[in-house]
Nucleic acid binder design. Structure first.
Lengths: 254, 254
DNA sequence: GAGTGGTCTAGACCACCTT
DNA sequence: AGGTGGTCTAGACCACTCG
């Protein structure tokens, strides 16, 4: 066996300390486990106590334990194998295809910590490409931001974004460590239409340096444009290290 | 009151008819409800029978009913309100899922010529992974195909696919140069649910040789699984050279 | 007050994996 | 054989909504 098993008594201590919360027991147990995984105190592959051990140490019924573990498994934080045990899942980001909107939310939904590094936020003269896309005169000001999104301490997205200055006049004054650009934009400009293009590429040397990855690592590049009231609001280039990020989506026959 | 309530006896009839499935009860109940909503027989806003009514009509314990309804609620198909009832949710934003459906169609829609090379189509003993995914015994036969799709004369997709033998018994006899595996499967097994996972990777040496690309070229890898009637029909690994392929999609005011 | 969903218990049987 | 998770039961108490 690789990882040292987590002790049921440790879980009991953490769970006991959460008694102040008024949430239901299964919720509190989920919170405790999510926190341990999020902070890295329980590393990938670590074996959790069995359901029966937790029944004894936590004083809850097995159904309650089972619900907490089952939901965490369906959230992708744990991996359960019948006859074997419950393990901390490998940390590999994944986002709903149509959920590429709010990366901070996706990250925290997985019980991880989201952090943003701002590379720059500035006004620039529009080049020909911006002129064509946004329909503003060449040389007139346009906003340009570049930030890096972290999940815990690994970079998972380099966001390079151009924004129409008239539709988001306060853009330069925003603190993007507090609220992501996407967050801000979706608040001030009601989303009308969006477009995604996804491809596999290698990052430039600068991209790779920002993300802290090797130059040969394949990356997922998402071009994302959003319109509001028929006007292009924002065009973003979202670059994700292939080893740390993937897109997920489901569809129904509807 | 708006919607006419759904009768618990109707649910019982549908549930009884699903007895042939060997799935657990909560799963069958979820399938039955999903199907009714998917086909529109239960319109938006419709009131479902209460948990206690279903306990009586289905002969299941309330915990089992509750699990089915709770999970459907978390899946967004139902909306539950304590003290009020359970309702069919409003249609989910039909986030345009990327059109990975039929590559032959996509190619010819672009005015190019589509061609398929069959690498192999064969029966294999299921390994552990197949066993877990498809729920068939380890070592029992499973179908495995690998074909390369060309757009004009450049390879754009390596399709490696495993298929449940019971749900597509004639799979080995198909001529995939005439009709793609996807085409065939969607004809014989009505699509229920699908899942995509998209990531950026490097192909194996064999992959790159099949696609005629350099080993260092980033590729878009799509894992695609499709279910019919709650049973996994097919799991495919679709590998696209990054330089020759990208995914596009649009979405509307979600 | 009657009905709803939300939660929880203390058992149980099963298929599965490991030894 | 013994441990694991997967499922299920038949009860129970609660906060909530509605008439």
């Amino acid at each position: 066996m690789i990882g040292v098993a987590i002790d049921a008594q440790d879980v009991a201590a953490l769970f006991g300390a959460s008694r102040r919360e008024s949430a239901p027991a299964y919720r509190r147990l989920k919170n405790v486990i999510t926190e341990q995984i999020g902070t890295g105190r329980w590393p990938e592959g670590e074996l959790l106590p069995s359901e029966n051990q937790l029944v004894d140490s936590l004083g809850l019924s097995r159904m309650t334990i089972n619900r907490a573990l089952r939901e965490l498994s369906s959230d992708g934080l744990l991996v359960r194998m019948p006859g074997v045990g419950t393990f901390v899942a490998e940390r590999r980001s994944s986002s709903a295809l149509y959920g590429v909107r709010n990366i901070a939310e996706e990250v925290s939904r997985r019980g991880r910590r989201h952090r943003t590094d701002v590379v720059f936020v500035r006004e620039e003269p529009a080049d020909r490409r911006a002129h064509r896309m946004f329909g503003i005169p060449e040389g007139s000001p346009i906003y340009h931001s570049r930030v890096v999104h972290f999940e815990d301490d690994s970079a998972i997205q380099l966001e390079d974004r151009h924004v129409h200055p008239d539709l988001a006049p306060e853009y330069l004054q925003q603190d993007f460590t507090e609220r992501t650009p996407n967050d801000y934009l979706s608040r001030i400009a009601p989303l009308g239409k969006g477009e995604h293009i996804v491809e596999a590429v290698l990052g430039t040397a600068e991209d790779c340096a920002s993300l802290g990855i090797d130059a040969a690592e394949p990356c997922l590049l998402i071009h994302r444009r959003t319109w509001s009231e028929g006007q292009l609001v924002s065009a973003a280039r979202l670059l994700h290290p292939g080893s740390r990020f993937r897109l997920e989506g489901t569809f129904d026959s509807l």
